[in-house]
């Protein structure tokens, strides 16, 4: 059972620098959670639900099937990192206000996917939102309110554009 923490990984997570020494097979999700970054959740572990979604150098990925070594030299953004001075990001505010979070366990992953979508496409139609969220599993909401939340967040961000943290 290899537990030699031999792999050096330097990265920036939510604006904070980390110098990790990890077992070589560590996933990015394991590394983040060990570093007390607990927004990304382990749900399926097979890349089939996106609850572990994070932004890695501008791209949303599943941290559960990304090796931590891939984050060396990279910038990582998670749902916690979207807060600015304690203020919710418009995506988060829309999720909270529309009732898009029920149990909330999938929510950080949805928030990250929505954020990534709105960076690429500030004015998505409903089909584009659904396509963007197509890999995110939610067992509580039936997706009605998460989709509504993303459309609402897009409206708010268009009317008051502000670059989010980690935005390119």
């Amino acid at each position: 059972m290899p537990d030699g923490s031999t792999l050096p990984v330097r990265c920036t997570v939510n604006g904070r620098e980390y110098h990790w020494r990890l077992a070589p097979g560590t996933t990015l999700l394991e590394a983040l959670r060990a570093a007390q970054v607990r927004g990304p959740k382990l749900v399926c572990g097979t890349g089939d639900c996106c609850a572990c979604g994070v932004i890695l150098d501008g791209r949303s990925v599943n941290a559960c099937c990304t090796l931590a070594g891939k984050a060396d030299g990279a910038t990582v953004l998670t749902a916690e990192g979207l807060l600015e001075a304690g203020r919710l990001h418009p995506v988060q505010a829309a999720f909270a206000e529309t009732g898009a979070a029920q149990c909330g366990f999938c929510t950080p992953g949805f928030v990250i996917r929505a954020y990534a979508l709105l960076q690429e496409d500030p004015d998505p139609d409903e089909a584009a939102v659904r396509a963007a969220l197509g890999g995110n599993i939610c067992r509580c909401t039936g997706y009605v309110k998460p989709v509504e939340a993303v459309l609402e967040a897009a409206r708010r961000m268009r009317s008051a554009p502000a670059p989010g943290p980690g935005a390119p």
């Binding site: 007390q36 607990r38 927004g39 990304p40 959740k41 382990l42 998670t78 749902a79 916690e80 979207l82 807060l83 919710l88 988060q92 505010a93 999720f95 909270a96 206000e97 009732g99 979070a101 149990c103 909330g104 366990f105 929510t107 950080p108 928030v111």
Partner: peptide, 21 residues
Amino acid sequence: APLPRVDGRALVAGAPVYTVD
């Protein structure tokens, strides 16, 4: 009234509020 959840802020912010956390 269709009020937001009392725990909504923690959930959308990814706060460590679950037993797994």
